[in-house]
Computed example of a mutant assay.
Amino acid sequence: MVRISVPTIPHSIISSATSTKTISPAAAIERIAEFLVPGNVAVITGAGVSVDSGIRAYRGEKGRYLNPNYKPIFYHELMDESPKGFTYRQRYWLRGYLGYKPVKDALPNPTHYALAALQYKSIVPKLITQNVDGLHDKAIAHLWNENTTRERILELHGSLRKVNCKYGHVTERETFQEWLSAANPQWKEYADDLEATNQRPRTNPDGDVDLQGVSYDDFVVPECPSCLLEGKRNSIHKPELIFFGESIRPEVRDRSFHDITTSSRLFLIGTTLATFSAFRLLKHAIELRKPVLHLNVGPTRADGLPGVEKIELESGKVLREVVRTLLGEKVDDDIVVRELLRSGEVRRPREDE
């Protein structure tokens, strides 16, 4: 039996991490702008870019999980048709039911809008995100239609927007949330109370919440109506995102490699690259001898790799000014860019303040 574990940064990197050479925000802005000047830059983002939107990252500045009780459900557990698999789905969907709204309601922060400006100006033709929160889409949705967005932004690990049943029937997540509410009125009341008192449980970037001392036994996972119409009974559902232990679809994997291959350089933002799906893209860029710049706080899987230049700063402190420096006087001439650089609020998770 193949052993599946949660991807993480090797302990040897965390234990041997030393402070990166300090650089002032002003110097960082100049260096990043200089790196982006040639254009045709591919960008890979991670959970760190969404922290300013109130979505807690998996790992903190020391590279370790912020939630020591983090125990995700693996793909094979969620799809298990045995009674044990049913209990896994009860746990997942109760926690996901409570955690979806904080992620759905999150708004793009200045980093998202700065990247939207770079995409709008075609300096960053392709953006690959490991995040499933849809915030990159929200930042540029008023400028691009859905087709353009999907051509320019690749969600490497999927999104929370849709739910698939075992037989392939697709449901919008908002509709599925309504099904969960109708099937679990007691939990809807609990969720409404949390909302009314602004007491949301600790939420992970994938919409999973940390619940302690809670029984999942009474949570009802609804059956798929489309399956019932076909004479089948089925309550096995999965959000349209990649679970630990699940393979990325070949077309997504191939496109991610193509986006790196056709770019001139690679800019990594807010990611520890703990997941191999992202780390292998960095390795691909290095093999192709692309210039690589990494903007992140804390240890990462890329630390010490030849060909990777790292700046240890939060993207929210510099990226908006990077765009202004890069475009110079053109910023004042472009009403769209000006508006993008004025947009975005910072609402960090309470525990991180």
Score class of each variant (00 low, 15 high):
residue 2 V to Y: 08
residue 4 I to K: 00
residue 18 T to P: 06
residue 36 L to Q: 01
residue 42 A to W: 01
residue 46 G to I: 03
residue 47 A to G: 09
residue 52 D to W: 05
residue 56 R to W: 06
residue 62 K to A: 15
residue 66 L to S: 08
residue 67 N to K: 14
residue 70 Y to F: 13
residue 76 H to Y: 13
residue 77 E to C: 12
residue 78 L to H: 05
residue 78 L to M: 11
residue 84 K to I: 14
residue 89 R to G: 02
residue 90 Q to D: 07
residue 91 R to T: 06
residue 92 Y to Q: 01
residue 94 L to E: 01
residue 96 G to P: 02
residue 96 G to T: 01
residue 102 P to H: 04
residue 102 P to R: 01
residue 107 L to N: 04
residue 116 A to F: 00
residue 119 Q to F: 00
residue 126 K to P: 00
residue 126 K to I: 05
residue 141 A to C: 13
residue 144 W to D: 12
residue 144 W to Q: 13
residue 154 L to E: 03
residue 155 E to C: 11
residue 157 H to T: 07
residue 169 H to C: 08
residue 173 R to G: 02
residue 175 T to L: 11
residue 176 F to A: 02
residue 185 P to D: 15
residue 192 D to N: 14
residue 195 E to Y: 13
residue 198 N to C: 10
residue 199 Q to C: 14
residue 206 D to L: 03
residue 209 V to E: 03
residue 212 Q to D: 14
residue 218 D to P: 03
residue 220 V to T: 13
residue 220 V to A: 07
residue 223 E to Y: 11
residue 224 C to N: 06
residue 227 C to T: 08
residue 239 P to V: 01
residue 243 F to R: 02
residue 245 G to W: 02
residue 251 E to D: 15
residue 253 R to D: 05
residue 266 L to K: 06
residue 268 L to T: 07
residue 268 L to Y: 07
residue 270 G to L: 08
residue 270 G to K: 00
residue 273 L to P: 04
residue 277 S to N: 10
residue 279 F to S: 01
residue 287 E to P: 05
residue 292 V to P: 04
residue 293 L to C: 09
residue 296 N to E: 02
residue 297 V to T: 08
residue 298 G to S: 10
residue 299 P to R: 00
residue 301 R to L: 03
residue 304 G to I: 11
residue 305 L to E: 05
residue 305 L to C: 06
residue 310 K to S: 09
residue 315 S to I: 04
residue 323 V to D: 03
residue 342 R to W: 10
residue 352 D to Q: 12
